[in-house]
Design a protein around this nucleic acid. Structure first.
Length: 959
DNA sequence: GGGGGAAGGATTC
DNA sequence: TCACGGAATCCTTCCCCC
């Protein structure tokens, strides 16, 4: 055995081209590795697996890898990047060697014990195997490149890529034949393919197309999970169930005529319009993208009711709408669906039947590298053990359980059994936010500080836009040798302003500059990240719950002995009863799981009436109804007519119908009946349905407002529950202000100072485990509000009625309102932020939550008086002011939960004690007075079974 | 020993 | 001719503190 590790590497690299040869070579290689000493001196001769072509991508099979790798190597060799990759490759090799040495020492007894454990877990996993859900992963084919080719058909004839000379984002299939792929530098791609056309990216355009695609997704799963602009997971189980009962007409789609290039371009300009064109053939080798037309003159295509047919229909509609093709995978879980979507790319689909045998057959020969989360390092480590396919993974589980951490081998086991998440986690929350920049070498310290500040400025803007504050500031530096270093510092308080972030970042930078002094710090990249966000989502449900606030008001206000029925008259009886039905939705410990009951509730109650849930099919219904209405328009409220027309299963359609008649507005129950819709979904819909006012809730909301502006209206005060007649929202606001003040006085609540926000967070966390917190948050949300009484006419009319409106000239805005905004977009279809044309802030009662229409964050005010402690604050910074109000409000909650509301003018001693305790100990990690709260996001609910997830847990293995 | 911060790394698009 | 991104998440390892 004189082979060297480099020979092993060569074997490995050439073997990964695939096929049966791979198994043979790697089997040999693993033996070789066991018995040799690595010879790193020859590392330069090695074809680096890190640098070599990764052909794990559609359209890249059967390439001359040796030739391509040779060009890549020649182009890269000697560069600093290459040298760094070489270094990292050696590190991985060392890890492998260490692993192999450990493996060599494993005893038979250990293996037997491990085998028993594996078998036990396997049995458990088998018992919990779920095959009922129909999960779909949809991936647009070469998305960016396809969009560019569509817009410039000449590109279709050339190998092209989107990106720059530094880095390519994607390439078309012609370019892939030359080995040009995403994540490859443009200059290397040019070496591989001198004729390559590199098109700079246009993300605005891709986003617009992505929105069109997502509109289609939403018709099959309103809560689909977008992973990026071009891919998403959907659970179409419910859709399929409904689909079984659909008449053929609902599954029939028109095939539109091919448009000329000029017409196509015109269509592209009107984003959101149905671009009814046949797809241009973007990929010569792709299967036919057009559906089978039944009959020579037929212009329609009828789709069936099976999962395959539903997904084919979805892809067909995407193609009709965007002229781009998508590929899809259908399987019982997310892991398999993802793999399947790649199987018949481009423009194809693949389904694994929901049977154990079908799953296991599919898994047998599947290379581990195809599984999402298995990257080049994991692949290489497994290959060293002779593991290439998932079946081999299963065969060696006992060994793997000894070599890898528990979470890692557990996940390996799941992969080998074809198991994955069957529930799509739609509620993951952002953990960090960062910005970084690569540049030509920068060695001047002043320049570096200046750049650092610039990055902090950009990051602060982003954080403030999302209403986030984090405690940990991390500085990322990459030197000219591509060595990356991160330095982090955790602050006592969460920060979000440029100054605060820079204060921490510049210290970290200074430490690095000092560290290499007197030599200059030679950088090529700098980044700043903020993480450890304060638990804003813990508070979210409390703030969302206007119900909670109203209940609080009814419980505590002596001036408002409001009964449940009265409250129901404001909110709608169905709402309060459903809140009781799902108490967890009001739980203070808000985890990602918590919102699921919301969705469940909406579905069950037929109140899936947020406009974003209006599907394509429902729009079609609405169109028909609108036509009917236009023909029959006589007297009586529009809604009445429409609701009579609606089939019982069409509550979603009916939900968008709004009264238009003044007479209706004047009636006692429907003073205001305005719909608020996420704009990006429905503005587009509105464009295509411009003749149908009822399908554009946003614009229609404005119409309704204007129409009724000069009318005397009756509002219900959310504090005293009296009916207030007024033409003018500001006078109503004044009334509510008064009520709130007396409310606060009644509570004898007093603050002579607000404790540090950090401490407040800790204490709040504690409370989160205990009780309902709606009070304080909602109290903050109703100053200067105009209450828009809920239309309580049942599911056919309303579940998203605006309840409150904060005037633009408010003395303050709700401190928490930013928290209602959507979480990190992540391409999320369902934006929660809506903007009022009047520059005001409105709360909108959806089925189980309150949405906020917010003003811009930079709204200027002159003086700010805290509505809780009534003290004028010496700041015009809304963020700082919000902190203050938050603190005051939370103090109130603290007092109430301790049943120790101090008399006016006294400070709560417990809070003080706590502060002193913490202060005395400094940066104590155990300063909680109570057991720690549950995790902000329950890990267990996470359903993304990627390698990221399964690396959880403590590892005792050190290689 | 365990919790948690810090640093580095793997992985994804 | 030169030239290898940006953002996010989660894992592992090390270390300190209680």
């Amino acid at each position: 055995m004189n082979a060297t590790l480099n020979e092993y590497m060569l074997l490995f690299c050439s073997s990964t081209a695939g096929g049966s040869m791979a198994l043979t070579c790697n089997a040999r290689a693993s033996v070789v590795v066991l018995s040799m000493e690595p010879d790193y001196s020859r590392g330069q001769d090695t074809i680096l697996s890190r640098v070599a072509l990764n052909d794990n991508k559609a359209g890249m099979q059967g390439l001359d890898k040796d030739k391509i790798n040779k060009i890549i190597l020649e182009t890269s060799k000697g560069s600093r990047f290459y040298e760094n990759e070489l270094k990292r490759e050696r590190q991985v090799n060392q890890r492998i060697e260490k692993m192999m040495r450990y493996k060599a020492k494993v005893t038979e007894q250990q293996v037997q014990k491990a085998q028993a454990e594996v078998e036990k877990l396997t049995a458990e996993l088998e018992r919990s195997r779920e095959l009922e859900r129909v999960i779909v992963h949809v991936d647009m084919d070469a998305f960016y490149a396809a969009v560019e080719m569509r817009d410039c058909p000449e590109l279709k004839r050339n190998p092209m890529a989107v990106g720059s000379m530094s880095m390519l984002s994607t390439s078309n299939y012609l370019a892939r034949r030359y080995g040009v792929r995403a994540a490859m530098p443009g200059f290397i791609a040019k070496k591989l393919c001198p004729d390559l056309v590199i098109v700079p990216p246009n993300f605005d355009k891709y986003r617009a197309v992505s929105e069109q695609v997502r509109e289609v997704f939403a018709d099959y799963d309103p809560q689909f999970l977008p992973m990026s602009l071009d891919e998403a997971y959907l659970d179409i189980t419910d859709h399929l169930e409904q689909r079984q009962h659909w008449p053929e007409s609902m599954r029939t789609h028109q095939i539109c005529e091919m448009k000329t290039t000029g017409e196509m371009r015109e269509l592209e300009i009107s984003v959101g319009a149905d671009t009814d064109t046949l797809s241009p053939v973007l990929f010569e080798d792709s299967p036919s993208s057009s559906p089978v037309v039944s009959g020579a003159d037929a212009k329609v295509e009828v789709f069936g009711t099976s999962p395959e047919e539903a997904v084919r229909e979805m892809r067909f509609r995407i193609e009709q709408k965007t002229t781009l093709t998508a590929s899809a995978g259908i399987a019982p879980n997310m892991m398999l669906a993802k793999v399947c979507s790649d199987k018949n790319k481009p423009n194809g689909q693949y389904r694994i039947l929901p049977e154990r045998k079908a799953v296991m057959d599919f898994i047998q020969e599947l290379p581990v590298r195809k599984v999402s989360g298995v990257g080049k390092v994991t692949e290489k480590m497994l290959a060293a053990l002779g593991i290439i396919s998932c079946s081999q993974l299963g065969q060696q589980m006992s060994t793997l359980s000894l070599l890898f951490s528990e979470t890692t081998w557990h996940h390996f086991l799941q992969i080998s059994l074809g198991l994955g998440s069957t529930r799509i986690d739609r509620d993951s929350e952002r953990k960090s936010m960062s910005t970084e920049r690569t540049f030509a070498e920068m060695s001047d310290a002043q320049e570096q500080y200046s750049l650092c500040r610039e990055l902090c400025h950009d990051l602060a803007k982003d954080l403030q836009r999302e209403g986030l504050k984090g405690k940990t500031v991390t500085l990322k530096l990459k030197n000219v040798h591509f060595e990356v270093k991160t330095k982090a510092f955790t602050l006592q308080c969460a920060v979000c302003t440029e100054e605060e972030i820079f204060a921490a970042a510049k210290d970290l930078l200074k430490a690095e500059i000092d560290h290499v002094s007197p030599l200059p710090l030679r950088l090529r990249l700098m980044g700043v990240r903020v993480s450890s966000f304060i638990s804003i989502y813990n508070k979210q449900p409390r703030q969302k719950s206007i119900v909670g606030f109203l209940k609080m008001a009814s419980d505590s206000s002596s001036s408002a002995q409001t009964s449940k029925s009265e409250m129901d008259s404001v909110l709608g009886s169905s709402v309060s009863s459903k809140w009781e039905q799902y108490p967890e939705t009001r739980s203070p410990s808000f985890t990602g799981e918590t919102s699921k009951p919301f969705a469940k509730w909406r579905t069950e109650s037929g109140c899936a009436s947020e406009p974003q849930q209006q599907t394509y099919f429902q729009k079609a219904h609405a169109k028909r109804l609108q036509k009917q209405y236009e023909q029959e328009e006589t007297s009586g409220p529009y809604t009445d007519k429409i609701s009579k027309c609606l089939p019982t299963d069409s509550t979603n359609s009916s939900a968008f119908i709004v009264r238009t008649h003044k007479a209706a507005v004047k009636t006692d129950e429907t003073q205001r009946c305005t719909w608020i819709s996420p704009p990006d979904t429905h503005e587009a819909a509105a464009k295509s349905d411009s003749n149908l006012p009822t399908t554009n809730p946003v614009s229609y909301a404005a119409q309704t407002k204007t129409k009724s502006a000069d009318m005397l209206q009756c509002f219900t005060c959310p504090v005293c529950f009296n009916q207030i007649e007024t033409k003018d929202l500001s006078s109503f606001n004044q009334h509510i202000d008064k009520c709130l003040c007396s409310e606060i006085d009644n509570k004898s609540m007093s603050m002579d100072g607000c404790p540090d926000l950090c401490e407040e967070e800790n204490l709040l966390d504690k409370q989160d485990e205990e009780k309902d917190h709606h009070k304080a948050i909602d109290l903050s949300s109703v100053s200067r509000v105009s209450v828009l009484k809920r239309n309580d006419e049942g599911p056919h009319t309303s579940s998203s009625t605006p309840l409150f409106e904060i005037g633009a000239n408010s003395g303050f805005r709700t401190p928490f309102f930013k928290r209602f905004e959507s979480k990190r977009e992540k391409g999320s279809l369902v934006p929660h932020k809506t903007t009022s044309d009047s520059g005001s802030v409105s709360f909108h009662q959806t089925a189980s939550s309150v949405e906020v229409i917010s003003e811009p964050l930079d709204m200027k005010v002159n003086t700010l008086t805290c509505p809780v402690c009534n003290q004028t604050q010496d700041t015009d910074d809304l963020i700082l002011f919000n902190h203050h109000v938050d603190k005051c409000l939370n103090q109130e909650v603290l007092f109430e939960f301790r049943e120790a509301v101090p008399p006016m003018g006294q400070t709560n001693s417990k809070v003080r004690d706590h502060e002193q305790y913490s202060t005395a100990r400094g940066k104590s990690k155990r300063r909680r007075l109570s057991p720690p709260p549950p995790p902000k996001k329950a890990k267990a609910i996470s359903t993304r079974h990627t390698i990221d997830k399964f690396f959880k847990g403590n590892s005792n293995h050190k290689f």
